[in-house]
Computed example of a mutant assay.
Amino acid sequence: MGRMVALLRAVNVGGRKLPMAELRELCGELGWREVATYIQSGNVVFSADGKPDALEAALEDAIREGYGYDAPVVVRAAAQWRRCAPANPFPDAARETPNYLLMLVSKRPPADGAVATIQAKAAAGEQVKRAGDAIWIYFPNGSGTSKLTPALIDKAIGSPATSRNYRTVAKLEEMLSA
Protein backbone atom coordinates (compact mmCIF):
# COMPACT_ATOMS: atom_id res chain seq x y z
CA MET A 1 0.00 0.00 0.00
CA GLY A 2 1.52 3.30 -1.09
CA ARG A 3 0.84 6.94 -0.30
CA MET A 4 -0.40 8.96 -3.26
CA VAL A 5 -1.84 12.27 -4.37
CA ALA A 6 -4.89 12.55 -6.62
CA LEU A 7 -5.70 15.84 -8.35
CA LEU A 8 -9.15 16.33 -9.82
CA ARG A 9 -9.70 18.84 -12.59
CA ALA A 10 -12.69 21.14 -12.79
CA VAL A 11 -14.59 20.21 -9.66
CA ASN A 12 -16.62 22.78 -7.75
CA VAL A 13 -16.58 25.14 -10.73
CA GLY A 14 -19.16 25.67 -13.44
CA GLY A 15 -21.91 23.71 -11.70
CA ARG A 16 -19.79 20.63 -11.09
CA LYS A 17 -20.32 20.22 -7.35
CA LEU A 18 -18.44 17.62 -5.37
CA PRO A 19 -18.18 18.39 -1.65
CA MET A 20 -14.89 17.22 -0.19
CA ALA A 21 -16.63 15.14 2.50
CA GLU A 22 -18.39 13.24 -0.29
CA LEU A 23 -15.11 12.91 -2.21
CA ARG A 24 -13.43 11.39 0.87
CA GLU A 25 -16.35 8.96 1.24
CA LEU A 26 -16.19 8.05 -2.46
CA CYS A 27 -12.45 7.35 -2.17
CA GLY A 28 -13.12 5.17 0.87
CA GLU A 29 -15.67 3.18 -1.15
CA LEU A 30 -12.87 2.52 -3.68
CA GLY A 31 -10.83 0.94 -0.89
CA TRP A 32 -8.49 3.89 -0.43
CA ARG A 33 -7.36 4.47 3.15
CA GLU A 34 -6.08 7.41 5.18
CA VAL A 35 -7.96 9.72 2.82
CA ALA A 36 -7.56 13.46 3.38
CA THR A 37 -8.55 16.38 1.18
CA TYR A 38 -7.17 19.89 0.95
CA ILE A 39 -9.34 22.90 0.09
CA GLN A 40 -12.36 22.58 -2.20
CA SER A 41 -10.60 22.04 -5.52
CA GLY A 42 -10.13 18.28 -5.57
CA ASN A 43 -6.84 17.52 -3.86
CA VAL A 44 -6.70 14.09 -2.21
CA VAL A 45 -3.90 12.42 -0.26
CA PHE A 46 -4.46 8.72 0.37
CA SER A 47 -3.01 5.22 0.68
CA ALA A 48 -3.96 2.49 -1.78
CA ASP A 49 -2.75 -0.52 -3.66
CA GLY A 50 -2.55 -0.23 -7.42
CA LYS A 51 -0.96 1.66 -10.24
CA PRO A 52 -1.70 5.38 -10.63
CA ASP A 53 -3.47 4.99 -13.99
CA ALA A 54 -5.82 2.33 -12.59
CA LEU A 55 -6.58 4.51 -9.56
CA GLU A 56 -7.24 7.49 -11.85
CA ALA A 57 -9.70 5.45 -13.92
CA ALA A 58 -11.48 4.10 -10.83
CA LEU A 59 -12.08 7.57 -9.38
CA GLU A 60 -13.10 9.03 -12.76
CA ASP A 61 -15.63 6.20 -13.20
CA ALA A 62 -17.00 6.69 -9.68
CA ILE A 63 -17.44 10.44 -10.22
CA ARG A 64 -19.12 9.87 -13.60
CA GLU A 65 -21.50 7.28 -12.12
CA GLY A 66 -22.24 9.18 -8.91
CA TYR A 67 -22.26 12.77 -10.10
CA GLY A 68 -22.97 12.58 -13.83
CA TYR A 69 -19.96 14.43 -15.20
CA ASP A 70 -16.40 13.75 -16.29
CA ALA A 71 -13.61 15.01 -14.04
CA PRO A 72 -10.13 14.05 -15.19
CA VAL A 73 -7.98 12.72 -12.35
CA VAL A 74 -4.17 12.68 -12.18
CA VAL A 75 -2.52 10.44 -9.57
CA ARG A 76 1.10 10.63 -8.47
CA ALA A 77 2.90 8.32 -6.06
CA ALA A 78 4.40 10.01 -2.99
CA ALA A 79 7.95 9.59 -4.30
CA GLN A 80 7.02 11.33 -7.55
CA TRP A 81 5.24 14.14 -5.72
CA ARG A 82 8.14 14.75 -3.36
CA ARG A 83 10.38 15.50 -6.36
CA CYS A 84 8.08 18.26 -7.64
CA ALA A 85 8.73 21.18 -5.29
CA PRO A 86 12.54 20.79 -5.24
CA ALA A 87 12.56 20.67 -9.07
CA ASN A 88 10.60 23.92 -9.36
CA PRO A 89 12.47 26.09 -11.89
CA PHE A 90 11.17 29.34 -10.34
CA PRO A 91 12.47 29.34 -6.73
CA ASP A 92 12.17 33.11 -6.31
CA ALA A 93 8.51 33.09 -7.38
CA ALA A 94 7.83 30.15 -5.06
CA ARG A 95 9.19 32.18 -2.15
CA GLU A 96 7.78 35.60 -3.04
CA THR A 97 4.48 34.93 -4.86
CA PRO A 98 3.60 31.23 -4.48
CA ASN A 99 0.00 31.73 -5.61
CA TYR A 100 1.23 33.07 -8.98
CA LEU A 101 3.32 29.98 -9.72
CA LEU A 102 1.41 26.99 -11.08
CA MET A 103 2.58 23.44 -11.57
CA LEU A 104 0.76 21.46 -14.24
CA VAL A 105 0.67 17.68 -14.16
CA SER A 106 -0.87 15.59 -16.88
CA LYS A 107 -2.07 12.06 -17.41
CA ARG A 108 0.80 11.34 -19.80
CA PRO A 109 4.23 12.95 -19.99
CA PRO A 110 4.11 16.26 -21.84
CA ALA A 111 4.71 16.05 -25.58
CA ASP A 112 8.01 17.20 -27.00
CA GLY A 113 7.69 20.89 -27.76
CA ALA A 114 4.88 21.48 -25.26
CA VAL A 115 6.79 24.16 -23.37
CA ALA A 116 7.68 26.03 -26.58
CA THR A 117 4.07 25.88 -27.79
CA ILE A 118 2.70 27.22 -24.50
CA GLN A 119 5.44 29.84 -24.16
CA ALA A 120 4.65 31.11 -27.69
CA LYS A 121 1.13 31.99 -26.50
CA ALA A 122 2.28 33.51 -23.20
CA ALA A 123 1.99 37.25 -22.60
CA ALA A 124 2.61 39.83 -19.87
CA GLY A 125 5.87 38.26 -18.70
CA GLU A 126 4.45 34.74 -18.27
CA GLN A 127 7.22 32.15 -18.22
CA VAL A 128 6.93 28.42 -18.92
CA LYS A 129 9.46 25.71 -18.02
CA ARG A 130 9.48 21.95 -17.66
CA ALA A 131 10.94 20.04 -14.73
CA GLY A 132 10.58 16.27 -14.87
CA ASP A 133 7.05 15.38 -15.90
CA ALA A 134 5.62 18.71 -14.70
CA ILE A 135 5.28 22.01 -16.50
CA TRP A 136 5.59 25.13 -14.39
CA ILE A 137 4.10 28.47 -15.36
CA TYR A 138 4.87 31.72 -13.58
CA PHE A 139 2.15 34.35 -13.95
CA PRO A 140 3.69 37.60 -12.64
CA ASN A 141 0.28 39.34 -12.92
CA GLY A 142 -1.83 36.35 -11.88
CA SER A 143 -3.49 33.77 -14.10
CA GLY A 144 -6.98 35.32 -14.17
CA THR A 145 -6.54 37.21 -17.43
CA SER A 146 -4.04 34.89 -19.09
CA LYS A 147 -4.59 33.62 -22.62
CA LEU A 148 -3.09 30.26 -21.57
CA THR A 149 -6.37 28.37 -21.46
CA PRO A 150 -6.83 24.77 -20.33
CA ALA A 151 -7.72 23.75 -23.91
CA LEU A 152 -4.53 25.31 -25.30
CA ILE A 153 -2.42 23.67 -22.57
CA ASP A 154 -4.04 20.24 -23.00
CA LYS A 155 -3.48 20.36 -26.74
CA ALA A 156 0.18 21.34 -26.32
CA ILE A 157 0.81 18.69 -23.66
CA GLY A 158 -1.11 15.98 -25.50
CA SER A 159 -3.33 14.87 -22.60
CA PRO A 160 -5.53 16.40 -19.91
CA ALA A 161 -3.61 18.42 -17.34
CA THR A 162 -4.50 20.10 -14.08
CA SER A 163 -2.63 22.77 -12.19
CA ARG A 164 -1.96 23.68 -8.57
CA ASN A 165 -0.25 26.72 -7.18
CA TYR A 166 3.04 26.33 -5.37
CA ARG A 167 1.42 26.76 -1.96
CA THR A 168 -0.85 23.78 -2.67
CA VAL A 169 2.03 21.69 -4.05
CA ALA A 170 3.92 22.26 -0.79
CA LYS A 171 0.87 21.58 1.39
CA LEU A 172 0.15 18.27 -0.34
CA GLU A 173 3.78 17.25 0.19
CA GLU A 174 3.39 18.08 3.88
CA MET A 175 0.17 16.03 4.06
CA LEU A 176 1.92 13.01 2.52
CA SER A 177 4.33 13.01 5.45
CA ALA A 178 1.66 13.45 8.15
Rank of each mutant, 00 (worst) to 15 (best):
L59W: 05
A79I: 01
V5H: 03
S163Y: 04
V11D: 02
T117M: 13
E25F: 10
G42P: 05
E29K: 14
G113T: 00
E174Q: 15
A120M: 09
A134E: 15
Y67L: 08
L30F: 06
S146D: 04
K129F: 06
A87Q: 06
N88M: 03
I135W: 09
R9M: 06
Q80T: 08
V115H: 03
R9D: 08
A54H: 14
F90Y: 06
A48L: 07
G113A: 00
E22L: 11
D49A: 15
A58M: 06
A120R: 13
E29Y: 11
A93H: 08
M103V: 11
G50S: 13
L55M: 13
A78E: 08
S163C: 08
A62E: 09
V44T: 02
S159Y: 13
A124Q: 15
K17M: 05
L176P: 04
E96A: 12
A77Y: 01
P52R: 09
R64E: 09
L104Y: 15
E65D: 14
G42S: 04
G31S: 06
P109F: 11
K147G: 09
S146A: 08
P19V: 04
A21C: 07
N88H: 07
Q80W: 07
R33F: 00
F90H: 01
S47F: 07
E56H: 14
A48C: 06
P98C: 02
G14V: 04
L172K: 08
V115N: 00
A71L: 03
R164D: 05
T145N: 14
L102I: 05
L26C: 08
S143T: 13
D112T: 12
R83P: 00
R82E: 04
S41M: 10
A48M: 01
R130Q: 15
S159R: 04
P19S: 05
V11F: 01
L26R: 13
T97W: 13
D92Y: 12
P140D: 10
A94Q: 13
L102G: 02
A116G: 00
R95E: 15
E173K: 14
E34C: 07
M175F: 15
R64H: 07
A123Q: 14
E60Q: 11
T162K: 01
E96W: 04
G42R: 01
I63Q: 07
A71K: 02
P86R: 03
L8M: 00
T149R: 04
W32T: 03
V75N: 04
Y67G: 02
P86I: 02
Y38G: 05
A151W: 08
N141Q: 12
